[in-house]
Design a protein around this nucleic acid. Structure first.
Lengths: 214, 214
DNA sequence: ATTTACTTACCGAGTACTCGCTCGGTTATT
DNA sequence: AATAACCGAGCGAGTACTCGGTAAGTAAAT
């Protein structure tokens, strides 16, 4: 715990508590994201990231003591930002939850850097059990799938979704489709309409799992 | 062209034409596959592959002059083997083509090494335009999607598949689902029933695109 | 208001190591 | 005699990370 708030001019909005290293840190995270995204973990070098920040190598390592620390900081930072933007923890019962992810995919279509980061890091972690982001990747899927499945279960309870639907299985399919489409889109952004394809998938899925009117 | 066959003992079945370097080469390809699969292109080292073959580094480079050559040789070798095993170019009209891929996914569930190789190399290529396997990845999707779409179009022509189905879009969705499920399965093989999930997806998809009986 | 004590934010130089790849040569096969 | 199949040694570049230091800022004590 540190006491910082009570300085002489409380009126100034000021970056809040963090003196200035915080701004530098966020800058580093932004640069690191881009370089990790295009080269993966092993392919990215601390030197390159440092240079992109106008720092020396030891200068960067002052803020993030190891390369693995830097990667996990980038991932956590992005997760935190995303959790704020899309309030993923709010309950959105039923098929509305599915439509929510259509919006996210549309949003991601304008952020290839982010998509690349998640694609490459997830694959690396999937393929190499010792990868520094392994726990992150496993936990991320758990969180995503658990959250969507919970929302779908709410839909089952209120009767809008058929009772015989395996909500976890559906959630897995949804995120598989998201990730698979991202790969094709990154390889061929002009010919692959990622949001459009995902939307048709979600539309068909929605009509399938919705309780039929009688 | 090389003339080798006419040696003194034509009765022996012998590995066919290639003297012995061919056997060594295939051994190298098998070892390289495993190491590329678990570390990606950049993360894998020629030294490690050579050691796994009982060769020195220059000894390996005698057979494959550069690292990129070795990777593309591995990928082409696998493609050739797969094309022989699953005769992908045979026309299998209609939804039978979809069921064919269910079999392949079931088969892949016993070959995590292969799945890893394709997952990591595809992601690397998707994320980095200068990746040595970029053309391979783009061309592979083109071939897979084109082939499946063509088979689906046959189904449209013979009336078993609805005429308003966008066959290319459906093909893209199928392979997206394959690749996305592979990631989740690699991260969590015990909890993710990859073939089962893919089969339910294909089943639902099949009923959707089939012409309704009237 | 100034000194003292401490922390933060860096950098230059270097360590020990790995990387892909080459050169010059030897051995085995045909 | 010719070619294929190697290997030992080494090159130049890059790797993550460390060491020892400096300069600046901050907080409390005087």
């Amino acid at each position: 715990m540190r006491k910082i708030g009570d300085m002489s001019n409380p009126g100034r909005p000021q970056p809040r508590s963090q003196p200035r290293g915080q701004a530098r840190k966020e800058h580093i995270l932004a640069v690191a994201l881009k370089i990790f995204a295009e080269n993966g973990y092993r392919g990215a070098s601390i030197a390159e990231i440092a240079e992109g920040c106008g720092l020396s190598q030891p200068g960067l390592l002052h803020h993030f003591p190891t390369k693995a620390d830097l990667l996990t900081a980038v991932l956590e930072y992005r997760d935190r930002l995303d959790a704020e933007k899309f309030h993923v923890d709010d309950p959105t019962p039923g098929t509305a939850a599915l439509r929510h992810y259509v919006n996210i995919v549309e949003h991601n279509a304008h952020l290839p850097g982010l998509v690349k980061l998640f694609a490459i890091v997830t694959s690396e972690a999937a393929v190499n059990p010792a990868h520094p982001a392994r726990d992150w990747a496993v936990g991320r899927y758990e969180k995503l799938i658990g959250g969507l499945a919970a929302n779908l279960r709410l839909g089952v309870e209120d009767g809008s979704i058929r009772a015989d639907v395996d909500t976890t299985a559906v959630a897995r399919l949804v995120f598989s489709m998201m990730d698979g489409l991202q790969l094709q889109w990154l390889l061929n952004p002009d010919r692959v309409d990622m949001p459009g394809l995902f939307r048709t998938f979600i539309d068909e899925l929605t009509t399938e799992i919705t309780t039929p009117d009688r």
